[in-house]
Design a protein around this nucleic acid. Structure first.
Lengths: 209, 209, 209, 209
DNA sequence: CATGAATGAGAGTTCATTCAT
DNA sequence: GATGAATGAACTCTCATTCAT
């Protein structure tokens, strides 16, 4: 059974190896200009091998997002499980969001772009449902935190889900826009975190009673 | 010279005709799956003709964004030129944003996606600089309105440009995220405008002194 | 309209040009080992061009059979339309079969092989129904001739359709088998026509009252 | 030496196991769409193992035909060895042919298709010569039976080999054509045996003095 | 100006075959 | 002998782009 286990581990490592390569190639060339052969070369594997681990290019691409969604969920569950006071949980939430961004900025941006993309049509139902499930579970935790704050009277009375949506929108909006600016202006200076912090400040002031 | 003019006008009309067709095809199939032949057919022209008006597929795509950027600028200038009280100008700004969304939601979303994309690399410098110029001019108007409110003491003291960025991020973030949700969940119900309104409310509460 | 016509003609000529090339390549390498690139090269065209005239490789392959089926039908109709005495029509039928073989032996053999192949699954329904229709119409003429002979008392009493089937089976069987022998034995001597003639003689003796 | 033998037997059994699986997969998917992996799975072996018993896919395919050719020869020798009267041997021959068809219809059809195919080029000379040898030996028995009938004056005077060829052609022709019809027309009703019987009847009437 | 047939590079993907274990 | 992960050549097919008419 040790052999079985070792094989499992090796298989998983291979998957990771491919995903690491894919990450690099996708982030350099974008989805369209990245070819499976590029990725194979980057992973020091043959093109055929990629298809032993991923059904097709789309699935490989989407799988990258899966990792960050998993991290997001874990991070949010961690926040939820600590029994914090409402306002404390808001701070913890904010920290979680920063962590998620730091975990893999490029992939997070991919995820934001993915959502409204056509790519979703050609991936396997299993993968799609995994994504949906992870998203929804994460999202309901954010809503839960918002609800707690509303219930305890520290937040204005709004539908928690709506507030969660706005929170997430602000998060993704700032990240996308600050990244865009950087690219368009060939700018090295990165205001992202500063802006994100300010954005959350304004949000908090706006939502507090 | 009348002839010259008429030719100009006709040429411009042709361009519009193509862009209208492109818009339809891109929005139906997405950028990748939309072929130049599809667009040509939709425009009742031949593929070759498209290349008399646009350097390549990318330029045609990006040109669509140009239109909405132009509209955005005009709309914002209109807000600026009316001599409104600070808080009034904020309301007017919000109205402008809604108008821009209504002007062409699909293309606006494209614009948001475009920003951090690789597409920008294959378009002509002229087109790129047009985009930059329009963006910046629009942006400085938003910043100007924010500055006015800060100066007149109704807003908390923050760098106007930062506030403008957050404002725009919130706008784009809500639109992208609400659209995403609709697609992922195969949902027909559209909460976008309602959520956008609430988002601006929170922003306003958060930014007001 | 002269232009229209000329274009039609040229388009048809192109199709023929491709089919001629395909015929050569398929007969040299067989279906599997023949690549679209080979055919394109043989036709002095680019691979892409082939797809302007044929949906895919299968369709191109099957289209070759269409020509001979069309010829078969024309030839059989010709036999039917001549008002011949029963026994004369049998002679005429035999001549028609020989003509069909001479028209394009290689493609005729393809047709025989095609029938029980899996290829039929990936061709367009239109093409398939064309093939079916041509086959059936041809076949009913053979049956019609057999029926005439039976009715006039020169043939033994058998179901005309069954007799037609046996006739066609004998025809295709002899052609396939004689061709096979030639290939297997690397034989240049061609007994096909002689054998076919004898086969029909035996058939005739066997069917005559 | 018992060990040697047992190993031989086991090796042969393994070969059979693979051929049984191959038979199933080929008949389900056709030669092209059947993959070595499919066959391996069906045989509950790994792909690599297949290559320990067969040089390549073509050889595996052709080996299936070998079995039926062996059966054909045995069956024909059996007919020959019984000292039958000429006309009786003709009946026995017919029975043998039906038995061969029943032995494995699908593989028999494969064999008919194989004959004029390009596949033969990529198999080993040994296998090819085995096929040739079996075919020829079978064939000469058919010719022998025909010769006997001619010699004894019950058959018209024709070259026995030619008659044998026509006999075999009729047999294969009917089988191929009836199978084709079934496939093309999605027909479940199977007229094969009935038609084959009639075909032999006509042949017999045609060949008898 | 407009056409649209032709191009041909290049994509994703498959799968017979190999070989280290 | 058996495995099965890895290979990589080769395939079909697409489509942005060109250019003779």
């Amino acid at each position: 059974m040790g052999i079985q286990e070792r094989k499992e581990r090796e298989k998983e490592r291979r998957r990771q190896q491919i995903m690491v390569a894919a990450r690099r190639v996708f982030s350099k060339n974008g989805f369209n200009r990245a070819t499976m052969e590029d990725i194979a070369k980057e992973a020091e594997l043959s093109p055929g091998t990629l298809y032993l681990y991923f059904k097709n290019k789309d699935e490989l691409y989407v799988s990258l997002s899966l990792r960050i969604l998993q991290y997001l969920l874990i991070r949010l569950e961690h926040v939820k499980n600590k029994s914090l006071k409402p306002e404390e949980s808001l701070v913890a939430l904010q920290e979680a969001m920063f962590d998620v961004y730091d975990f893999d900025p490029m992939i997070l941006i991919n995820l934001f772009h993915l959502q409204s993309s056509v790519t979703l049509k050609s991936i396997s139902p299993e993968l799609l449902s995994q994504i949906k499930s992870l998203s929804q579970r994460s999202f309901s935790i954010i809503a839960y935190i918002m609800a707690k704050n509303i219930k305890y009277g520290s937040f204005i009375d709004q539908h928690p889900m709506a507030v969660a949506n706005i929170y997430w929108s602000l998060f993704s909006g700032v990240i996308l826009w600050e990244t865009s600016k950087k690219i368009i202006n060939n700018n090295d200076k990165d205001y992202l975190k500063k802006t994100l912090k300010k954005a959350f400040e304004i949000f908090n002031r706006g939502i507090l009673k």
